Simulated scan of single mutants.
Amino acid sequence: MSEDQGFPTSLGMSTTSTITLLGEDIADLMATHSLTELVYRMVTLRPPTKGQARLLDACLIALADHGFTPTAIAARLTYLSAPDSVQGALAAGLLGGGSRFLGVTEDCGEFLHEVVETFDGLDDPPPTSQAWDEIAREVVAEAKAEHRIIPGLGHPVHKEQDPRTPALVEIAAEEGCYGPHLALFEAIGRVHPEILGRRLVLNGAGVVGAALADIGLPIRLLRGFALLARAAGLLGQLAEEERMPVARDIYDLVEENAVFVDPTAAREEDGDG
């Protein structure tokens, strides 16, 4: 490397006989850190508190696996097609993490953060629940007037309550990690029916976004934590595909029930005739 050229990093470095990460010997980190703690440190460059690590761990578990979602099906079908490429199957599943699946974590965290960062002195003293309710009313009313969807409000399956929501809120409170993002999201959950005219649940993935924002993780990287969690879930899906394969049945079902539609008729149905 030339004297005037350098590529700075605070993460991993290697020599012929050593590996360091965050400036520390890798063996020492292996003996003292969980993967969750290490990920937090690598992203923020500061060690998490015990409570932050526990809440992050809970958030990762909350997003790990939800059964036969499109991401899981994509991973299994790719594994069926290329059983020699575990990395391809995992990648196929992760690429499906977007606005409808997994993306709500980042979308919700970003939505809440835009509101929270407009207020000064939120910790001195912290707003009461009634104060948060007033803020939430303004937020929901504005979203309604602009015909905007509030990310994390509502769930396609859990219509009464997302079971992850109270569990994550309880852990955040127990660990002293309950902050303004969770407070605002809970307030939105309380007040939105009076403005929208219907009750929607607080989506657990949205709560994860609020919780991750409250423990100081970068808003623009929140989807990355959802993908980290889902990578673990997809590995479990591929292991189950080995034990109890279903990908071939899914493929056969679609193939055997494919129905040809005349291209001309299809164009007319789309209004292109």
Rank of each mutant, 00 (worst) to 15 (best):
G179N: 02
H155P: 06
T118A: 01
A232C: 12
T9A: 12
V169E: 07
L77G: 04
D107F: 07
E170S: 14
R267V: 09
E240R: 07
Q237D: 07
H66L: 11
P83G: 00
E194A: 15
E240L: 03
R137N: 02
H181G: 01
P151G: 03
T69L: 05
D249E: 06
A232T: 12
L90H: 09
I250L: 13
A31I: 04
L21K: 06
A31W: 09
Y40N: 08
V104L: 09
G204I: 07
A62H: 01
Y178A: 00
V191K: 01
V86P: 00
G204Q: 10
L77P: 01
M244H: 08
H192K: 04
P263N: 15
S14M: 14
M30D: 14
S34D: 11
L184P: 06
R41L: 14
G197A: 10
Y251F: 12
E106W: 13
A136I: 02
G97N: 12
A210V: 08
P245H: 06
Y178C: 00
G179Q: 02
E160R: 04
R220H: 14
L102I: 13
P166E: 07
A131N: 05
P47K: 11
D252I: 15
G236N: 04
L77T: 09
D252F: 12
G88F: 12
L29D: 00
I150D: 00
L95Y: 01
A231I: 07
L227E: 08
A136K: 02
F68Q: 10
V169N: 07
A74W: 10
T32M: 12
P126T: 00
E170C: 13
A167D: 07
R223E: 12
Y251L: 11
P193Q: 04
T118C: 00
K50R: 15
A231N: 10
R164K: 10
R76Y: 06
I61L: 14
T105Q: 03
G6L: 11
H155L: 11
M1K: 15
V86L: 09
E110T: 13
G23A: 04
M42V: 15
P47N: 12
D162Q: 00
A27W: 10
H192Q: 04
P126E: 00
E240I: 09
L182S: 03
E242A: 15
L22E: 07
A172G: 09
G154Q: 03
G121P: 00
E106S: 11
I149S: 12
E269H: 04
F111P: 02
H192D: 01
D249K: 06
L212N: 05
A143V: 09
V259G: 02
Q130R: 05
L227R: 10
G67W: 08
S99Y: 13
V140Y: 03
N203M: 09
L63I: 02
E269K: 03
G93N: 08
I19T: 13
K50S: 14
H158F: 05
V116Y: 06
F111R: 05
A187F: 05
I149V: 13
A58H: 11
G271A: 00
